[in-house]
Computed example of a mutant assay.
Amino acid sequence: MEKVFLGIGSNVGEKIPYIKKAVTLLSKILTDMEKAPLYISKAVGFEDQPDFINTVISGYTDIEPYELFKKVKDIEKKVGRIKRFRWGPREIDIDILFYGNLLIEKDDLIIPHPRIHERDFVLKPLSDLDPDFVHPVFKKTVKELLLNLKEKSIISSLQLSTL
């Protein structure tokens, strides 16, 4: 079993229900799942769109990385994702951030996610779950990456007791 971290975000429609539904579906393929708090953040890339709600979950799986990627994309469809354009609005977005310390660099799958170190809306919830996890490429902890981050997009955290 490998520990995986998945980033989840939504900025269209019923954002929190979409995230809750994704987490419920992901709980069927991950064991010992942990959930970080929710954060509101400005859009990155294409900025002229609504704010996002983001979180990170962790859990364990014996599903191979490509199969996990397929399952994650299927869950996005089940939740209601509509494909628009790169960095555009999303009902739900689920990214594989880390799969243990595995390194994969293929056209359709890159692990660790290539922009983790640039995004506080990923690093902050990651740090909430496991601040001492070491990024296998940069050889720095999640906490160190967050502390060294220059640009910030998080506006606030959401205080919800359950997700």
Rank of each mutant, 00 (worst) to 15 (best):
K150M: 02
E118Y: 07
H135W: 03
R115Y: 15
R119S: 11
F133V: 07
K139R: 14
E118R: 14
P114Q: 08
E151V: 06
L147F: 12
K150H: 08
R115F: 15
F133E: 00
I111L: 01
N148H: 04
D132F: 09
T141H: 08
V134C: 09
E105D: 11
N101Y: 14
V137T: 05
H135C: 08
L145I: 05
K106F: 00
V134A: 06
D130N: 14
L146A: 04
L102V: 08
R119K: 01
V122A: 04
K124A: 12
K139P: 00
S127M: 02
N101L: 04
D107C: 02
E144A: 08
L149A: 03
T141Y: 01
K106P: 01
I104W: 00
L123T: 04
K106Y: 05
D120T: 09
L102K: 13
K140S: 05
L145P: 07
L123M: 12
R115P: 07
F98R: 03
E151I: 09
Y99F: 06
E144Y: 05
G100Q: 06
L129W: 03
D108A: 00
L146R: 12
L145T: 07
L146Q: 06
L126V: 13
Y99I: 05
L145A: 04
D120V: 12
G100V: 12
L123I: 11
E105M: 04
L103F: 00
K140C: 00
R115K: 15
E105Q: 09
D130Y: 12
I104A: 13
V122F: 08
H113D: 02
E151R: 15
K143A: 01
D128A: 10
L129S: 03
